[in-house]
Design a protein around this nucleic acid. Sequence first.
DNA 1: CAGCTTTTGTCAATGTTTTGTCAATATCAT
DNA 2: ATGATATTGACAAAACATTGACAAAAGCTG
Lengths: 324, 324
Amino acid sequence: MTNYLGDASRYLISTVVKRSGVKADLIRAWERRYKAVTPTRTDGGHRVYNDQDIARLKLLNQATSEGHSIGQIAHLSLTDLQKLLKLEAVNSPPPAPNRGNVSSTNNAYLADAYIDKCYSAMMSFDARAIESHFENAVVELGAQAFMENLLTPLLTRMGEDWKAGNLRPSHEHMTTSVIRSMVYILRSNYTPAANAPRLVISTPIDQQHELGALIAALIAEFKGWHITYLGPNLPAEEIAFAVKSSNANAVALSITITKEDHVIPKEIRRLKKLIGRDVALIVGGSAAEDYKVVLEEVGALRSDSCDDFKQLLDDLSVKFQGSS
Amino acid sequence: MTNYLGDASRYLISTVVKRSGVKADLIRAWERRYKAVTPTRTDGGHRVYNDQDIARLKLLNQATSEGHSIGQIAHLSLTDLQKLLKLEAVNSPPPAPNRGNVSSTNNAYLADAYIDKCYSAMMSFDARAIESHFENAVVELGAQAFMENLLTPLLTRMGEDWKAGNLRPSHEHMTTSVIRSMVYILRSNYTPAANAPRLVISTPIDQQHELGALIAALIAEFKGWHITYLGPNLPAEEIAFAVKSSNANAVALSITITKEDHVIPKEIRRLKKLIGRDVALIVGGSAAEDYKVVLEEVGALRSDSCDDFKQLLDDLSVKFQGSS
DNA sequence: CAGCTTTTGTCAATGTTTTGTCAATATCAT
DNA sequence: ATGATATTGACAAAACATTGACAAAAGCTG
């Protein structure tokens, strides 16, 4: 079995400098003094790095520039470094999302490479490998691009393969659980303001697929909303109860499968009645348009894409600002 | 193996200053005069602190600024310091009804306090608060104790409240999703050996509750197994498919709800037939004993507690060692 | 309250460690 | 042959440690 550490990514130091932002001399110094990375070598002795090394260097660079001492963190794993930076961000207010240093085209290209890797790992049920690729991708692309250029396309591709019958439920289950477990790292790390608008996210009953809901949760979190994520497959009463209890301003539902019966329309009508007129209802997902009629009937907002959803959130945000 | 969240991170004094809010000179003075913290040293003699030290300093700082004299409290344990400042620990709006069940040992007492906090946060759908309590608890208790003294009792209590009707599905859903997202952080990130025994974890069809399965996954991961976690509610074919694809040595199922129909027994029989005799089948969860008959019939292993499960894993581990 | 002692936070002076950077020289790759 | 890379050694700025001292604050005593 090919293991994910031995994949086809091989970069010379000049490439690593460009992608990690760490100068070559420093990379070598870190290796010499602390074994921060341990690249393989060509026959001639040139260093050969992989994606993981790049991700590491990027994180180490960020951590040192935030005051951590390289000697103390050089040996930490990728995960530990992420934890370190997350904790760091939690305890200090500076919201500086100002680190765009890779062009978007380059980003898209890189993301595509990662998608392929993730897909083959998924097919062979190698959760560790998926996770490892995700980790690297998050570091390299940043959380935003990770979601937009990797997670969303991956989800789309999975949806297609699902319809074509190439994908089994177990694949989808495993991948979902990997993504869910990474939500914590992905999430923007500052606590939303006390008066941030509040959103409850779920999927209606009999809708088991939660990937869409997860992505929606992440997007909303990045937008500064205060999220109550309920996971998939809940009846209207439960969702409404959560809305009341958390005093939410809006509910977002993800619907990805069209059912012939009338369960979904019934649930939506019931939910809308329960939450009342003051709470907005947003419905998205690949099957949302099949329920167009009901949605219009109850005055629900539809979102057909990530950008759509963002726009909706922004609009609502203005409306609900400060209404606690 | 080495790191839970505790000793993974080592900080120099400048970082500690930023995180704790105590000036460097003062930290050293406190150490010199009262041994308030006892950092290790680098070869060169620089002080190296850990998360607990930082937590301590934070608390000490808070306590002194509230009038306590440093000389009197410097030697107190983290627990005692927390008790000292217990009135300040209110950061969630709804004051929780405190179920006063105080245990004997400090650690258990501490865990109990966290359980209460988590429970009231859960009741008010404050996912952020739950997460924050979990984070603190992991740092304070260590991952092992976190699971055994907090997560497991919490789960048990949820089960009881569920039966008593005090808990709604939405509560359980939200809490599950928080725990799932924390799994990533909890996991020791050491990559299992290539020849580590492989385990697939899921719950049978119609078993929506996955908290037991999650804890099982964590335990197995700590034991060095290579895990493929599938999430809840999968038919036998899917689980078997994942077993074949990942070349697993064993399957673990969590069953928490007893159904009157014969779905579960049928699923178990089918699963056992599909995976064959060479793959072990482990079944646990609060409702597992209700299916005793079937389980014995197919030769499944039963685990009634965490310790039980650990024992089982160890036994199997020996058997499967190196068989890839 | 005045006077005395103890506690506690801060600072300065001086020496050591850590770490980013650079230069010189040799080797590799195309 | 030329540009990229590797190795080694060195350097200086920044960060850290130690020691000793000092004064404000707190506590105590008569």
